[in-house]
């Protein structure tokens, strides 16, 4: 009789920890998914920039420096590794882009260019996508981190690494480039 009870308790405990383990795996996968979505959107932004620079070149002849800055920031952002470094590089790229869009205000011909307008919309949307992907990733990462730290999950979560949050370090990065019309 006692053997049965002990056995039952042990089985229940094992099942309980299996449940916790699976929950941790699920939360980690959710966070990983979120991160890959950010990656996709950052790449989308990097792909849009050469087109934008190409379109603007003809109109903004005296602003080579600004264009150069955008191109350099893009190259640096492509080379960045890991959330912390990427956050910094993307912040600089965002700042360079908003500087560029502010300058483009002085060129009415450029602003009337259909191609430029649609690129502007795509870039603004990409900024939003990065923002929302980051929001979803950070929520998932926080959930996962909480799950692995609370007792009793902390007893078995040794092999689960803490997820890094993704913060973009530059004011104005999170918002759409401000453009007055």
């Amino acid at each position: 009789m006692w053997v049965l009870i002990v056995l039952g308790v042990v089985v229940a405990a094992v099942l309980y920890f299996v449940g916790i383990y699976n929950g941790l795996i699920r939360a980690r996968n959710q966070a990983k998914n979120g991160w890959s979505q950010i990656d996709v959107q950052l790449k989308r932004r990097h792909d849009l920039i050469p087109n934008l620079v190409e379109t603007a070149k003809g109109y903004m002849k005296h602003e080579q420096q600004t264009l150069e800055k955008v191109v350099q920031a893009r190259t640096a952002a492509i080379g960045a590794k890991g959330p912390a470094e990427a956050g910094k590089a993307e912040g600089l790229l965002g700042a360079a882009l908003s500087g560029f869009f502010a300058l483009s205000e002085r060129y009415p011909d450029l602003k009337a260019n259909q191609n430029f307008l649609s690129l502007q919309e795509e870039l603004a949307s990409t900024e939003n996508r990065i923002g929302f992907a980051r929001q979803a990733y950070n929520d998932a990462a926080t959930t996962y981190n909480n799950k692995r730290e609370v007792f009793p999950a902390s007893l078995i979560s040794g092999s689960f690494e803490q997820a890094e949050l993704f913060e973009i370090e530059a004011p104005g990065e999170r918002s759409v480039p401000k453009v007055e019309f």
Partner: peptide, 16 residues
């Protein structure tokens, strides 16, 4: 309608 499609895709990302 780029804006509408973009907004839908942005929200799909936010909702995962």
């Amino acid at each position: 309608h780029p804006i509408l499609v973009n907004v839908v895709e942005e929200m799909a990302i936010a909702a995962q």
